[in-house]
């Protein structure tokens, strides 16, 4: 497995110039730090999709970790762009702390949960603080999406990170409750429901989020639950990382790796085999809207392998 992780590194590094190109890097621009290029550069839409601000997370990881081919390690410009992305996210929240993804005044749970997760990870890594994080915390406390496991998992980690940033125990309690709700919704076969059914791609994303949560809390019941979900994946993911997505509830085609890597599971080997063969869907093939998240996932997996090899 050791050699296979290099493919993750190569794919990640190939995507960073593209990722940076999405961002407004002009410090004198009104939209400095915005990573929704269709908004700040082409001006074809009237509001930015806040999910693009998740670019701050892989940038902060690259800034903090030195590895082969990483031009961005401890580069001051990268740090400035990361901070600008975080501050743009913070300044474009609604008064209630929520954000928009698909339309103005959406105040979406998915975008608020995932972007808060990513931005708080970057804030913790680079010790950056923004004012009034609490309003987003309050919004997340008051909203959930029990039918969509991946979003619930993301919100749980976002709340846990908010607790680390603010020391407010209500966020910790809420994150624990979210995890309990999630575990109680797990099907006996191992999947977490996505709109009432099983979806392999979103299950891998849920596992990736839970893996982040578990790394911080080391909760036993969570680990067992993740094991059951991995077993579900193991029975359905083929030798080259492919699976029959047509039978799944959301018909996603991707496979997130971090949740598989945390336990060095068979599906991880299959995923890496698919990458080596050049046949598996990966960040290079994704559109601008979603490649950032999978790139971050691959980077985290590579760094995890790096840690274990030290």
């Amino acid at each position: 497995m050791k050699g296979s992780f290099d493919r993750f590194r190569q794919i990640v590094l190939s995507q960073i110039p593209r990722l940076l190109g999405l961002g407004d890097r002009d410090p004198f621009s009104e939209t400095y730090g915005c990573f929704d290029r269709v908004f700040w550069h082409y001006r074809l839409i009237d509001f930015p999709n806040a999910r693009f601000q998740e670019a701050c997370w892989p940038l902060s990881l690259l800034y903090r970790h030195s590895f082969e081919g990483n031009l961005y390690y401890q580069n001051e410009k990268v740090r400035q762009w990361t901070e600008a992305a975080i501050r743009f996210w913070a300044s474009h929240r609604h008064r209630d702390g929520s954000l928009d993804e698909a339309y103005p005044n959406e105040r979406g749970f998915c975008v608020t949960a995932f972007s808060t997760f990513a931005v708080t990870e970057a804030m913790l890594l680079l010790q950056i603080r923004v004012p009034n994080l609490e309003k987003t915390g309050r919004w997340l406390l008051g909203h959930d999406q029990p039918f969509v496991a991946n979003q619930m998992a993301a919100s749980a980690v976002a709340l846990l990170n908010l607790y680390q940033l603010t020391n407010e125990k209500r966020y910790l309690r809420a994150s624990q409750e979210r995890i309990s709700t999630l575990l109680s919704s797990q099907d006996e076969t191992g999947f977490f429901p996505e709109y009432g059914g099983a979806d392999i791609g979103y299950l891998s994303l849920t596992l990736a989020c839970l893996a982040h949560y578990w790394r911080q809390t080391k909760e036993g019941p969570l680990w067992e639950s993740m094991g059951r979900a991995l077993k579900f994946l193991e029975e359905r993911v083929e030798e080259d990382g492919h699976y029959d997505y047509r039978q799944t509830s959301r018909k996603t085609q991707f496979l997130y790796s971090y949740g598989l890597a945390i336990s060095d599971s068979p599906p991880l080997e299959r995923l890496t085999q698919g990458l080596e063969q050049g046949t598996l869907l990966n960040p290079v093939w994704l559109d601008d809207r979603y490649f950032i998240q999978l790139t971050t996932d691959y980077l985290e997996t590579y760094l995890l392998s790096w840690e274990s090899r030290r």
Partner: peptide
């Protein structure tokens, strides 16, 4: 007016020399 803005703006893609 919008076309002018699009025409004036450079492509603003990232290149490593910016680092």
């Amino acid at each position: 007016w919008k076309e002018k803005e699009r025409y004036v703006a450079s492509s603003k893609y990232f290149t490593p020399d910016e680092l």
